[in-house]
Computed example of a mutant assay.
Amino acid sequence: MKLDPVQRTILNLLQKDSTLSTQVLSERVGMSATPCWRRVREMEEAGVIRGYVALVDRHKVGLGTCVWVRVKLKRHGADVLERFEREVKGCEQVVECYEVLGETDCLLKLYLPNLEALSVFMHDFLLKIPEIDVTHSAVALREIKNETALPL
């Protein structure tokens, strides 16, 4: 879906505050409520807007440790990747997972309460997946930038 300038403005506003009413949104965009609502609805139906969420401060809910784990798989068959993906998708500590090019095959992002939880995650979950050959972890010392809004 190609976005027009009004749709981009709507998306930028919703990315900052998805609780805006259609009335407020339409005023900020400079159009009446019904056409504005239609624009939002079109983007929802097209999958441009996938949903609405509450952004939670991870530190305030006890998830102060951010860890990136690079994973190298033993083999690269479709069945191996499917099994690995199934395991990772079912693990709540993994908040992001990417298949990547380079020395490793996948990159996982975890939010955990502490380093002890990382040890438990590695021993009780990740290292029990038979498709994994090697892992490398990097613990974030501090968060410099973490944005959810896409640059439109």
Rank of each mutant, 00 (worst) to 15 (best):
K2V: 10
L3P: 02
D4C: 05
I10D: 01
L14E: 02
D17Q: 03
D17G: 05
S21E: 06
S21A: 10
T22L: 09
Q23H: 15
V24P: 07
L25Q: 05
A33S: 10
T34S: 14
P35M: 07
W37T: 08
W37A: 12
V40E: 02
M43C: 07
E45N: 15
I49M: 09
R50F: 09
R50Q: 11
Y52D: 01
V53G: 11
L55Y: 11
V56L: 13
K60Y: 00
V61F: 12
L63D: 04
G64C: 09
G64A: 11
T65V: 12
C66N: 07
V67I: 02
W68P: 04
W68F: 15
R70N: 13
G77F: 12
A78S: 11
D79W: 08
D79Q: 13
E82D: 14
E82S: 15
E85T: 15
R86E: 03
V88Y: 00
C91V: 10
Q93H: 14
V94D: 00
C97E: 00
V100F: 11
L101A: 14
T104N: 03
P113N: 03
P113T: 01
V120G: 04
M122G: 07
H123E: 12
H123F: 07
F125H: 14
L126Y: 02
E131F: 11
I132M: 03
D133A: 14
D133R: 13
L141V: 09
N146R: 08
E147D: 14
P151H: 11
